Amino acid sequence: MGKQKTEMLKGVLEGIVLAILAARPAYGYDITTRLREQGFEDIAEGTVYALLVRIERRGLVDVERTPSEKGPPRKVYSLNTQGRDYLDEFWRTWSFLSERLQLLHEGDEHS
Rank of each mutant, 00 (worst) to 15 (best):
L103C: 01
A44W: 01
G28Q: 04
F90M: 03
H105C: 01
G15F: 04
V53I: 12
A44C: 01
K75Y: 04
G71S: 06
L97D: 09
L101D: 06
S95K: 11
L35D: 06
R34I: 08
L13P: 07
A50N: 14
G59T: 11
G11R: 15
E45Y: 12
W91T: 06
G15C: 04
G107Q: 06
A50P: 00
P72S: 12
S68H: 04
A22W: 07
N80D: 10
N80F: 05
R36G: 06
V48P: 03
Y49H: 13
V63T: 08
R74A: 05
M8T: 09
L87D: 03
S98W: 06
D88P: 00
K70A: 03
L52V: 02
V48L: 03
H105L: 14
G28R: 01
E7K: 10
L18D: 10
W94V: 11
N80T: 05
D30S: 10
A26K: 07
L104H: 09
G39Q: 12
Y49I: 07
P25M: 10
R84K: 15
W91H: 07
P67W: 00
G107C: 01
V76T: 06
W94M: 09
E41W: 06
L87S: 04
R58L: 11
A44K: 15
R65D: 11
T66K: 15
G39L: 13
P72Y: 04
V53C: 00
F96N: 11
L87I: 04
L79I: 12
L60V: 04
